[in-house]
Computed example of a mutant assay.
Amino acid sequence: MNRGRTSTTTPGKSRFDDIYNRPDPRAYFRRLAPLQYEIPHQAQDAFRRARADRAAAGDTGGPVTVLDLCCSYGINAALLNHDLTLAELYAHYTGPEAQSLTTTELIDLDKEFYASRRREDATPAIGLDAADQAVRYALAVGLLDEGYAENLEQHAPSEQLRRAVAGTGLITVTGGIGYITRRTFEALLECAEIPLWVTAFVLRTVDYEPVISALADFGLATETDPAHAYPQRLFTGSAEQRNAVEQARLLGHDPTGLEAEGRYYTRLYQSRPRAA
């Protein structure tokens, strides 16, 4: 679940182990800015719409609790629950003020930074990631109401996580598919006590069918628009691009105008109960 780890389902993809589990996200934003990493921006409106749809469906007993998989430093929660853009987060964490601070000082700054931008429609946010330091940061600055540093690919969920998932109405994920598999989704859905929807952005180089099959076993039907692709980031070099083009083709996707032009692309998958 820590996206810095090697995955058998994303061969040839560059690793960023050194930035995924720091005490704060400054190195993460500095490293990814030149690569134009933008999938949290692409997901912002989609996640808000999915949350609104989930609320309209009822059965949540209150505001929709959102569980973000591979939550890292809480970026998706920041964009979901605050009047912020991803560009503003890049500016915040790569700017001179943030660079001069200790981690403790940055956390104090970020508590005020996020609190002052909290939306009126903000709802409870839970984060799950094996990167324990990243999760602690997201909790410390108030982006997450609950955070769990657990790897469900290797271990069963803790009792605390089980209780948290029991009341969750929506699962979101942007960059994690390929590092997490159907095992993580099965473990979470087994804990659900109310209908649990899933909104996932998945690289076109990754086979999502095993997850779709697992979700179907729990009564969820998955829809996607194969004609709509969302940019994720630039490739780190020609070797990564060649591999991505090959993987996309192996999965039946045409890389022309997409991976062949120099960056990763994703598809959006919406999984909801068949009755919905």
Rank of each mutant, 00 (worst) to 15 (best):
R3I: 14
K13R: 14
D18Y: 10
D18R: 13
I19C: 05
N21V: 10
R22A: 12
P23L: 07
D24K: 02
P25L: 14
R26A: 01
F29W: 12
R31F: 08
Q44P: 15
A46C: 09
A52P: 07
A55L: 13
A57H: 07
G58H: 06
G61Y: 11
V66R: 02
V66S: 03
C71L: 06
S72L: 06
A78F: 07
L79R: 08
N81K: 03
L86K: 03
G95Q: 10
G95F: 14
G95Y: 13
A98Y: 11
Q99L: 09
S100C: 04
T102C: 07
T104S: 12
T104V: 15
L106A: 11
F113E: 03
A115I: 07
S116E: 14
D121S: 01
I126T: 04
L128V: 13
Q133W: 12
E153L: 10
A156R: 13
P157V: 08
S158K: 05
A164T: 11
V165P: 13
G169F: 06
I171C: 09
V173H: 09
R182F: 02
R182M: 01
L188E: 06
L188W: 12
L188S: 09
C191E: 07
C191H: 10
A192Y: 09
V198Y: 02
A200F: 05
D207Q: 09
Y208N: 11
I212T: 15
G219T: 06
L220T: 06
A221Q: 15
E223D: 14
A227S: 12
H228N: 13
L234Y: 10
S238C: 00
Q247W: 02
Q247M: 14
Q247I: 00
A248I: 06
A248V: 12
L250Y: 00
L251K: 08
P255N: 09
G257I: 07
G257L: 04
E261R: 15
Y269H: 14
